[in-house]
Amino acid sequence: MIAVQQPVPLPDALQVPSNAPEHCPGTQSELAGKADACAGCPNQDVCASGATRAPDPAVPLVRERMATVKHKILVLSGKGGVGKSTFTAQLGWAFAADEDAQTGIMDVDICGPSIPTILGIASEQVHSSSSGWSPVYVQDNLGVMSVGFMLPSSKDAVMWRGPKKNGLISQFLKDVDWGNLDYLIVDTPPGTSDEHLSIVSYLKESGIDGAVLITTPQEVALQDVRREIDFCRKVGIRVLGLVENMSGFVCPNCKNESQIFKPSTGGGRRLAEDMKVPFLGAVPLDPRIGKSADYGISFLDEYPDSPATTAYLDIIDKIKEQLEN
């Protein structure tokens, strides 16, 4: 006998509260509060009363905050360490290069926030005012929110299970005074789990423009990105396109190019073709990208003539085009 298990189909997962037991039928289901699995669930009374078929109270508050945000973009990957946070930061800086545009970056990687370091604002704290938490500003038109601004020390581990992470994400969406934004970019942790489900379910109603997917060329990364595309399709998020990062290494001495992460199965370009998503471009491996991130400086400003900068700017133009469609 083969012990195949199927994960719960996603429409259910969006309706499964993070504190529900394993076999929760979904709060919108006819069986909500009445199924065998509901016995002992903390939500049983609420579900049985039918109240859960009404929307989450945070949703209208999120909708109100998000009414003044024009474009909402998720940066996703599935695989860890492929450069999601670095790309998010470059995208933020590039959008903010236009003085008339207001940009926000929201970091929902609760256990491993990198955005404060990459943007050079790691020592900042969040302040609250009557209109909510105010984001930390990198420059006048680039505001940032991350759990990194809330920890007493950068060494502290955030050992939270799903429900607490979801609580914080809903606060980031309803309690942060984002103001009028042209772009809100959301950096996510790897995987397809609580953070992803929460951000999608909270933002769904206000409308997500789409997701930019990041990969590296090797199959071990591509297989996770396939899963992420599957996730986007299940929850109905448009894929703005795929970026292949760390594509080839150009030696700073002899300009010779070598493939460190070989695209053994055709890399990002082939994946984009196979899965019918737009391919946005490839960014080479450049040690100066890692250094800039560690020092919190903008790579695009620092090395305007590098091939990686050209690649980034090309990709960002394509994203803008996609947003206009």
Binding site: A3, V4, Q5, Q6, P7, V8, L10, A13, V16, S18, N19, A20, P21, E22, G78, R161, G162, P163, T192, S193, D194, H196, L197, Q223, R226, R227, E228, I229, D230, F231, K234
Partner: peptide, 19 residues
């Protein structure tokens, strides 16, 4: 090893992962 297709995403919240 438990997935039918390798591109299937596993979208699980905490309790399901714990189980």
């Amino acid at each position: 090893f438990l997935l039918k297709k390798k591109e299937d995403s596993v979208v699980w919240r905490g309790p399901k992962k714990n189980a």
